[in-house]
Design a protein around this nucleic acid. Structure first.
Lengths: 251, 251
DNA sequence: GCGGCCAGGTTGGCTGTACAACTTGACGCG
DNA sequence: CGCGTCAAGTTGTACAGCCAACCTGGCCGC
């Protein structure tokens, strides 16, 4: 039985308990979960709440679900929280690595047409460009080029250039990232990349372009990250219930 | 008002209508959706059903949602169906490209330990390896190396080597893909890749590794696809409501 | 003009109910 | 032994209602 504390929804707590049970192997790999009605009884909540919890596990690819039979445990794959996928710093820490970084360059200028479109700005609005190299255990692994609208750029520009995380201070200023759209492909190192990542110009890099919006739907960041090969891989789970991945022809 | 035809759930039809409305610009970009209760009235269903429909749009990143205020339209980003993300053929056709391909090699042999683990097979079980090159408008863009458990391999091996799609015939044999886990990173062309993709050994390629399971949770395919740079990009949407993307240190 | 307060509107969370669609295993028949 | 039938169990879909948390805009007082 779980007690409501008001800070977190019941169904999220149930989901967390079920996650724990799955990774503890309480149901076995390839095993079956108890029926929704049984779970409802053991946790002392209604079936609807259980279904909300299970929808979370379903989206993470931890369990299947199919009409007519009990849910099957798919795997104990480590699942990151949203905040870990958004923040390089939190991601690294959750893996036991020591994240670091250094701001190489900050530029403020009028937004160019592409930037205006991506950040939904008006003509003449200013943007703030931040170029940063990021490290894991002191080894450079990624170059980050971010574009912020002016009011957010002000905050970023005011931070310590050696600050490990930008996301955390931004959140403290009330900037919340809730939706992120990623595009992943391959590109080649330019002179800046080569110098910062200690590789050669023209070497292939894994590229992640990212557009983040806040709860109101206003774009707050447009960023391009370039990773040294062999340092990271992106994983996506995708089910017929809720498809998130798509594949595009390169633009 | 939408009429139930029994073949598709009401909430899916409502979701489809809302999608259409969004891409038609009926609500404007950055505009607001009508309230759930209003939608419930216009579609003649209960609020719960509307919420199920909106959850689909939310997962696709088409709308935000926030307590206290109406939903905001995020974008009209083209969203693929699950079947389009799983099948190269259907994906290509939906983009107006002409997909093609050729089976280069088929091997049957006892499963190696890695394969046994990925496909959850017992010692001594056989697997079927298929090497295939795939084209868009006759241009080679991807090399696919798939591993199937024996009973599925039989079906694949029996297909015409020039067959454009393997997914479609497999589905006709009752093989259903419902969950897919993707890992995306970068690798370098080996001799086979170079010959098939018309590039040089050592050239960088975008790699997608994929493990698919059927509704019972049984693995049905383990595949590694290697794309020529500049031909595809992977896109992922990720919201604090339902996070699907994760980033891993390379294994 | 400006700021705080408040009422109304809206989504989030939870419960309960009912039935449909589907799977599985057991049973009985040929 | 093989096969179909059937019943029980389970998830999917839909409905109705209730309250809490939260946002927005307008009003009022200063």
């Amino acid at each position: 039985m779980i007690v409501a504390d008001g800070r977190q929804a019941m169904y999220r707590k149930v989901a967390a308990e079920l996650r724990q049970g799955i990774s503890d192997g309480a149901y076995g790999s390839g095993g079956r979960l108890p029926a929704e009605s049984a779970l409802a009884q053991t946790y002392g909540v209604s079936r609807g709440t259980i279904r909300q919890a299970l929808a979370l596990l379903r989206a993470d690819g931890l369990v299947t679900s199919r009409r007519g039979t009990r849910r099957v445990v798919l795997g104990t794959a480590r699942v990151q929280t949203f905040s870990e996928t958004v923040s390089f710093t939190r991601w690294a820490r959750s893996l036991g690595e020591e994240p670091g970084g250094r701001v190489v360059d900050v530029v403020r200028r009028a937004a160019e047409p592409v930037e205006r479109e991506k950040l939904r700005l008006a003509e003449g609005d200013e943007v703030c460009l931040v170029l940063r190299v990021r490290t894991l255990s002191a080894v450079p692994v990624m170059v980050e080029r971010s574009v912020y609208p002016r009011h957010i750029g002000e905050i970023v520009a005011g931070l310590d250039p050696a600050a490990v995380s930008h996301t955390v201070p931004l959140e403290e200023h009330g900037v919340r990232f809730t939706d992120v759209h990623h595009t992943i492909d391959l590109t080649y190192a330019d002179a800046d990349d080569a110098a910062l990542l200690d590789c050669r110009v023209g070497d292939a890099l894994l590229r992640e372009r990212r557009r983040s919006t806040d709860p109101t739907g206003t774009p707050v960041e447009w960023s391009e990250d370039r990773y040294l090969p062999g340092t990271v891989a992106f994983t996506v789970h995708n089910s017929s219930a809720a498809a998130a991945l798509s594949r595009r022809t390169a633009s």
